[in-house]
């Protein structure tokens, strides 16, 4: 082999992930008849007749998800079945369970995180792994609540930043006596104006009116 040839470096966290997951999740094969396969360097899939368990390697985290497979006679269970994270499931199953939190920055810590998650899955999700999805609609509702809250937060963030931007422009226009521009900008966010800004609009309108009167007089 040519010594000058560059050997691509494999990230250490993927190495830890590849070596630890089959060991930590071996109980799935032994106890529930799952088959484990590595889809890519960041994803393992354990599949049985009733559900799929996916183990993701994320930036700074490891994620375990479950997804029901095939028809289940459960009231309120939607199809296609949704993939839910262990965090969502455990939050509904037992709120007292302490999930490992915090972003991992050292590759060697991924091993511990994988073992912790495997233990939690084995301890709390045995009915799900066996195919009992009676609680699944509850989990889905909770997941939707969280997703809706996130979207709301994101929209609020965008709204606030946009408002701030328009306000700043209007303020500059007002200070520079560009009253027409200031009025337009303030009007575009009229619902969110403060009493002071409303007074500024009135003042700007008055100034514009005065200018027109003066122009006609000339």
């Amino acid at each position: 082999m040519d010594s000058n040839q560059a050997i691509p470096k494999t990230p250490l966290d993927t190495v830890v992930f590849r070596e630890t997951v089959p060991v930590a999740f071996s109980f799935l094969m032994a106890e529930y008849g799952f088959t484990l396969a590595q889809e890519n360097e960041c994803l393992f899939t354990a599949r049985s007749d009733v559900c799929i368990v996916r183990i993701y390697l994320e930036w700074g985290d490891v994620v375990v998800t479950l997804q029901p497979l095939g028809p289940h006679q459960v009231e309120g269970l939607r199809t296609p079945h949704r993939e839910l994270g262990l965090a969502i499931i455990l939050a509904r199953l037992d709120p007292k369970v302490e999930l490992p939190t915090g972003l991992i920055t050292k590759p060697e810590e991924f091993g511990d995180r994988i073992h912790q998650l495997a233990t939690l899955l084995r301890t709390y999700c045995a009915p799900l792994l066996k195919g009992n999805f009676s609680d699944w609609p509850r989990f889905e509702t909770y997941a939707e609540t969280i997703a809706a809250a996130w979207e709301k937060e994101q929209k609020k963030l965008v709204k606030d930043t946009n408002l701030g931007r328009v306000r700043a422009k209007a303020e500059v226009a007002f200070r520079e006596h560009a009253y027409a521009t200031a009025i337009n900008l303030y009007e575009s966010i009229r619902k969110h104006l403060t009493p002071v800004e409303l007074k500024k609009i009135e003042y700007a309108r008055k100034q514009l009116g005065d200018r027109e009167t003066r122009g006609r007089a000339k």
Partner: peptide, 9 residues
């Protein structure tokens, strides 16, 4: 979000 609420994404 349903799978990994705390993702860096």
């Amino acid at each position: 979000k349903a799978a990994n609420p705390q993702s860096a994404f």
